[in-house]
């Protein structure tokens, strides 16, 4: 049985449809990512699950019971805000204890739970500090500890890494996933960063204009994007329209996604699945190199391994790929 089910959730702001009859199921112990650009409805969806917005129609079901009309305090859901929203007038310990106090937990039980969370998140020694005396990473961990204090079965994370320095992001993301595995709770994360979603989540839902374009594991999403827009959003893939370059794929489709690392340099132009091109730009990226090449009517992105001999800009090259590299796009 799923932990959380959304059934036909629709939300409008004025005349604008933010969510359009959206349905989704999230399992217990799952790390789930809602991926989308601005205006895709991903944050609205999170706020509906938390109870800050009410949907016009549809249901939100948590652990089998309908919570659509319950106010936020009555939901067994905790949310971590993008800004962290730490209470500036309370110490770290009091921030973490806030939800326990509201629940009327006994004093010594609060103290031991706070101590547990402080240890779990590596905040020892910072208990008496105020939020403005903490670094960004420490603030993020306090927000996490505060949200986890009442052991919610479902934790919502709104862009949990966006406020961190880029150097800290990868490490913190991995810590987040390790924590989720350890606690066994479900995490639902909203993000606009596809690499973050692919790296951390068990499953990813790509949202577009209030609808789900695709739900899949990161691997599947990356290899087999369902539509042109998903492929475009995941980035870096070349989109080849049927009827352009001579193509032969395993499945017939109106268009195909072709990952840049599946393209190789060839000596002879093949009859199908190949193109003659002129090199526009070459960018060495350390682990590999990105080549932009002008084929007939289309610029192709090609990623070459670091060891390969790199062509010069202006050079004529021949590109080729396997039929299995063409992922069919349905729309």
């Amino acid at each position: 049985m799923s932990l959380l089910a959304l059934e036909g959730v629709t939300k409008r702001f004025g005349g604008v449809v933010a969510l359009d009859g959206l349905s989704l199921e999230i399992g217990a112990g799952e790390f789930f990512a809602l991926l989308g650009g601005s205006g895709s409805g991903k944050s609205t969806l999170l706020r509906i699950i938390a109870g800050f917005e009410a949907p016009e129609s549809g249901r939100v079901v948590l652990q089998g019971s309908d919570i659509t009309r319950l106010p936020p305090p009555a939901r067994a859901v905790a949310m971590m805000f993008q800004s962290y929203a730490l209470f500036p007038h309370l110490s770290v310990a009091d921030n973490i204890a806030y939800g326990l106090r509201r629940a009327g937990t006994a004093k010594d039980a609060i103290a031991s739970r706070v101590a547990e969370l402080v240890a779990l998140l590596g905040l020892a020694g910072l208990e008496a500090r105020r939020p403005h005396q903490l670094s960004g990473g420490q603030q993020q961990r306090v927000a996490l500890a505060r949200a986890l204090a009442r052991r919610p079965p479902l934790l919502l994370l709104d862009e949990p890494l966006a406020a961190l320095d880029s150097g800290l992001r990868e490490h913190t993301g991995l810590e987040l996933r390790a924590l989720q595995r350890r606690l066994g709770a479900s995490f639902v994360m909203v993000t606009h960063d596809q690499s973050e979603a692919l790296a951390l989540a068990d499953r990813v839902a790509v949202l577009e204009q209030g609808r789900i374009a695709q739900v899949a594991s990161p691997r599947e999403l990356y290899d087999k994007p369902a539509t042109r827009s998903v492929a475009r959003f995941l980035g870096a893939a070349n989109i080849l329209e049927a009827g352009g370059l001579p193509l032969r794929a395993e499945v017939e489709a109106p268009a195909y996604a072709l990952r840049p690392e599946r393209i190789r340099l060839a000596d002879v132009l093949p009859a199908v699945n190949g193109a003659a091109a002129i090199v526009l730009e070459v960018a060495f990226r350390g682990g590999d190199a990105l080549v932009l090449a002008q084929a007939s009517g289309q610029v192709l992105r090609v990623v070459l391994p670091a060891g390969a001999t790199l062509p010069e800009p202006g050079a004529a090259i021949i590109l080729a790929w396997e039929p299995s590299a063409l992922a069919p796009l349905l729309a």
Binding site: P72, P73, V77, S83, F87, Y98, R102, R146, R150
Partner: peptide, 11 residues
């Protein structure tokens, strides 16, 4: 978000 997070935490 400060007031929302408080409500979210059961206040």
């Amino acid at each position: 978000a400060l007031e929302e997070v408080a409500a979210d935490l059961g206040a």
